[in-house]
């Protein structure tokens, strides 16, 4: 078939690219809003900043309808099993944005209860720094994620299968082990 016979309103592409294009421009976020960042997430979705301009305004609170999890706020040890369960309930293909310093690294809360970065326990695709990030910054993050999906997404999601490691740092680093040992020694000496 000669290309010149194709009418103007038909264009050719790869199936992978078409699927990624569609997915990138209709993200359905699952706002896992635990703390302050959740309010900025609300601000991003409401009047002044209007997330709808980027096709990501359909916040759904049921994980089964979503494909983008935005972890907004600190996750503590009581909440982490809930987060993991919600992540597992989301259908593929799915992505995760870790919004704010607390979700990325624990932020200012280096305490006994706060998980030092959700990426230790679930895969994270994109980190948005800030405490909390401004709405503009979250939007920049969503645009960057759209870019990531467009350049590397496949129709059947095989790109996820290759990632067999959690994408963040290893769950137990050396510092942590030393800290635990010191704490245990302290405990023994007290008793």
């Amino acid at each position: 078939m000669a290309m010149k016979d194709v009418p103007d309103n038909i264009f050719m592409t790869q199936l992978d690219a078409a699927a990624s294009w569609a997915r990138a421009n209709s993200l359905w976020p699952m706002p896992f809003a635990t703390a302050c960042c959740g309010i900025e997430l609300m601000a991003t979705a409401s009047s002044r900043f209007d997330l709808a301009r980027f096709g990501a305004e359909v916040m759904r609170f049921s994980p089964r309808q979503c494909d983008l999890m935005i972890v907004a706020g600190r996750v503590v040890m009581k909440m982490l099993p809930v987060l993991q369960r919600i992540w597992l309930q989301m259908p593929e293909p799915k992505w995760c944005i870790s919004m704010g310093a607390c979700a990325c690294t624990g932020g200012v809360f280096d305490t006994y209860a706060v998980v030092q970065g959700v990426d230790r326990f679930i895969p994270v695709d994109l980190y948005v720094p800030g405490c909390p990030p401004r709405p503009e910054q979250l939007m920049a993050g969503i645009i960057a994620l759209q870019d990531k999906i467009k350049h590397g997404g496949t129709l059947n999601g095989t790109e996820f299968g290759k990632r067999t490691q959690p994408m963040g740092p290893t769950p137990y680093d050396l510092d942590e082990l030393i800290r635990i040992r010191e704490a245990n020694e302290q405990l023994v000496s007290l008793n």
Binding site: V76, M77, L80, P81, Q84, W87, L88, E92, K94, D110, T111, Y112, A113, V114, V115, Q116, R120, F121, I122, P123, F160, G161, R163, T164, Q165, P166, M167, P171, Y172, E176, R179, I180, E182, A183, N184, Q186, L187, L190
Partner: peptide
């Protein structure tokens, strides 16, 4: 006061979910 600020590792005592699991 005898409990350390950073805890005794409770905060990291969870299973890890990788991309391949989910």
């Amino acid at each position: 006061k005898d409990y350390p600020l950073k805890g005794r590792g409770e905060r990291h005592n969870f299973p890890v979910i990788t991309r391949a699991d989910s």
